[in-house]
Write a protein that binds this DNA or RNA. Structure first.
Lengths: 222, 222
DNA sequence: TGTATACTTATGCAACTGTATAATTATATT
DNA sequence: AATATAATTATACAGTTGCATAAGTATACA
């Protein structure tokens, strides 16, 4: 009957793990990887530090799990955006989604940079990175292949691979610029530049095929 | 007359600062930002931890100084590479230099990622970032402007700005891909992709204008 | 050659870190 | 309602961190 002992409820192993992963992601996004201590993460998860070790072999194991979760969610989110009648429209929607909020944000860059500092020093983090990178690029390559075939210009695999690498670089680079210096770019500017660049690169009219969220309406409602 | 006290020489304030900055950069590049403690950095600089506080207000101040130094060196190095008879050749050489070793390397990405995690949380780091980013992009914009003018297609500033943003994104994105997954790309593959992509984007024949360091010779001499 | 002084080292400390271990308690099962 | 068990909290600890302070010394300058 210790009156100052924290009361608690059991919510099941899976939910508990999820809460800890969510806590880890929230701390890294908002306060940076250096602030992601076991105590800080546990506090976010509404839990005592010791519990982390009950569900994960170590803090690093939790970090890897959070990395995997985050990349998986991101891939699924952009993939869901890639809809449209034509292959070109699907490619354009995919690019567009990746170059707007909420994908473009300081928090997202913070998360990504934090993970990056561990990728080169942890085998598990490295394998997560390699896998998720490959997934993203393969998906992009499929979209590019479909769009070129649709335009009557099917390309061999070697050319498609190079196109996918380049497209990925454009998206990553613009995403990074936008997340780091959000003030430097107007509303849909990054998405426009991305569509124009990749359109010229593939010689496809992506810019007009993109779904144009009306900037004016957005500005007025703000 | 303590026999076990470390002997030392005075090398002058500027050299000492330089040694500490170099030590900080070396530790971050090789062991990551988390390993860049005052003790580790001091050891690299051949100095006692306490001395850091004699030359810098704090460890963070040394970090900012190192960031500034690193970005300055990088900009100067790539700028020096941007030589050539024609404007197109200068642009091509600039792109090429940024997409090959030693600019493309795991150590460079390690440094950059480490700094990135602090940019969003330190005003001084943020100003260094904004300044060096602007310098790099402005230089790139000048090269693009010259190349387009040379081709008889001068472009207005607004278009040049967008081109520079896109070129920068391509270079950054490819640089990052290469540094993170060096095994995934053949020798000059990234540089080729970069030149091809930006060439198609600007509708300029950059690919043939690039200086072709002979890969075969490089392989043989290794 | 002496000496003042800035440079450099040595020591200590409070705060924080990840994690091991022990004690408690919510809850499923009977 | 009693009980067993796993979930959760509490406590402790050794190592590390940035930094303040004190002590020592290389060297420029008289």
């Amino acid at each position: 009957m210790s009156p100052d002992r924290k009361s608690f409820r059991r919510i099941g192993p899976d939910l508990r793990r999820d809460a800890m992963i969510a806590g880890m992601l929230a701390v890294i996004a908002e306060e940076g990887i250096a602030a992601a201590t076991t105590r800080a993460v546990a506090a976010r998860a509404g839990v005592t530090p010791g519990l982390i070790r009950h569900y994960f072999d170590s803090k690093d194991a939790l970090l890897s799990a959070a990395f995997e979760r985050h990349m998986g969610d991101l891939t699924e989110a952009t993939r869901r955006m890639g809809q449209g009648d034509s292959a070109a429209a699907r490619l354009a929607a995919f690019i567009d989604a990746g170059l707007r909020a909420p994908v473009v944000s300081a928090e997202a860059v913070s998360l990504w940079a934090g993970f990056l500092t561990h990728v080169q020093r942890s085998a598990e983090m490295q394998s997560v990175h390699a896998r998720t990178y490959a997934e993203f690029r393969d998906h992009l390559q499929g979209l590019v292949a479909d769009a070129l075939r649709e335009a009557g210009r099917p390309a061999p695999d070697a050319a498609l691979r190079r196109h996918a690498i380049a497209c990925n670089a454009v998206i990553d680079g613009l995403w990074l610029e936008g997340g780091m210096l959000s003030d430097a770019f107007a509303g849909g500017e990054l998405a426009e530049i991305g569509l124009e660049t990749i359109g010229e690169m593939l010689n496809l009219p992506l810019r007009t095929a993109a779904p144009r969220y009306d900037e004016m309406t957005k500005e007025e409602t703000t």
